[in-house]
Amino acid sequence: MRVLYVAPRYHTNQTAIMKGWLSRGDEVCFLAQYAGKLEDYTIIKPKVIGYSSFFILLNNLYVKIIKRTNEYAINMRLRYGFPPVGKLYLAMKKFSPDVVITRERSVYSIVVTILCRINGWPVILYNQSPLMEESKKDILHRIMYNLTPKYRITPVYRSKKNSQCKDPNAFFLPFLMEPHISPEDKEYFLEGYINLLCIGKYQKRKNHLLMIEVVERLATKYPIRLNIAGEVSDSFQEDYYKTVQEHLKEHHMGKIVTLYKDLTQAQVFELYKKADLFILPSSEEPAAVSPLEAMSFSLPVISGDDNGTATYIEEGKNGYIFADKDAADLYNKIELIISDKRNIQKMGRKSFELVIEKHQFENYYQTITDIVQQINN
């Protein structure tokens, strides 16, 4: 099978999918709108298609002048970015795909969908809207649904909202993850400490300061250390990174908390190896892959309930879910695990078992081929 992905960027969380296709002898091509700063291109290197010249002009005006104080202004390209249609079509035509998987409901994916319909290429939408979501039937949403693929895959099962229903053409496909360190090979409590780990860009919504506040309290009772690793790719993130640094100095936490920035994937994996418990304190997290990465290293995990992949955690078995931005609840959930070191090893084993059971390529492959068959029929 010839599988074509068209997405804003190639994300490292897609590595297991790429490996899965290639191990079967399938051909994979990845067309990206832009290249990420810290992605791992060992398995596959995307071809960057970019945006039309006119959109680049508008985007620069919007990001650098109109919304220059808004750190999220750059995300406008994800929804409204317009491709260089000729360049995009030639790349798609040259590959001649058996199936196209495009990312998000956006102007870019509308163009991709139209090109697929003209050429008879089966096309599937991948986004991170929950499988169980509120039905939106206003005119704008109906137009968008008609212009983008009928069939959809998502790694998110449900949101916190009520009044949800399942689209019969939507399929739940959780993130895939290679197993990295089995419980038998995992070393816990290095240097006599309980080692906590957080990973996420240096942004306010990642709630690093809340995490540090909780660790400061826990450190009076338990021998803990916290490593925080994140990306700093713009001036807004740099400013926030400095804010976190200053907070650590003011609270004399330098010996308990260590900050890392802009690590490679290999360096991040080294942090997973040294950790005993992974915590994702973030808010507004559509679908974080880091808890699943931690599970593949035989770590128990804790996530806020404002994360789309929090459902990958089986509460009380391989971790816990805490109420968003609730420092007291986060404190309690961490203490439930670290108060007895046996919990860490037992839950870490369950995490690894869940990765093997629910996050391997076979289910992904079967679902994609079933959808392609439905489209072709």
Rank of each mutant, 00 (worst) to 15 (best):
E238M: 07
Y51M: 14
A328W: 00
T367H: 09
N207Y: 01
L263P: 06
Q164N: 13
D340W: 00
D26R: 01
H141I: 06
T154R: 03
K346M: 10
I153Y: 05
D185Y: 04
K249S: 11
S23D: 14
R349D: 13
Y72T: 09
L78S: 07
P46G: 12
R103Q: 13
F236Q: 11
P286D: 15
A219F: 09
E353Y: 00
A35S: 14
K161S: 14
G25K: 01
L88H: 04
R349M: 06
N162S: 15
R79P: 00
K261P: 01
M1V: 13
E238H: 01
N127P: 00
I44K: 03
Y151P: 03
V289R: 00
Q366T: 08
V257A: 11
L90D: 14
S106F: 08
P155G: 10
R158C: 09
L336N: 05
C198E: 13
L131H: 02
F236K: 01
P46K: 05
P291C: 02
R217L: 11
D324N: 15
D340A: 07
G316K: 02
M132G: 09
Y126P: 02
I338P: 03
Y151S: 02
L336K: 09
V215Y: 00
D262L: 04
L90H: 12
V372S: 11
N318Y: 01
H11K: 08
I224Y: 02
R217K: 14
G254M: 07
H251A: 06
K186E: 14
Q203C: 01
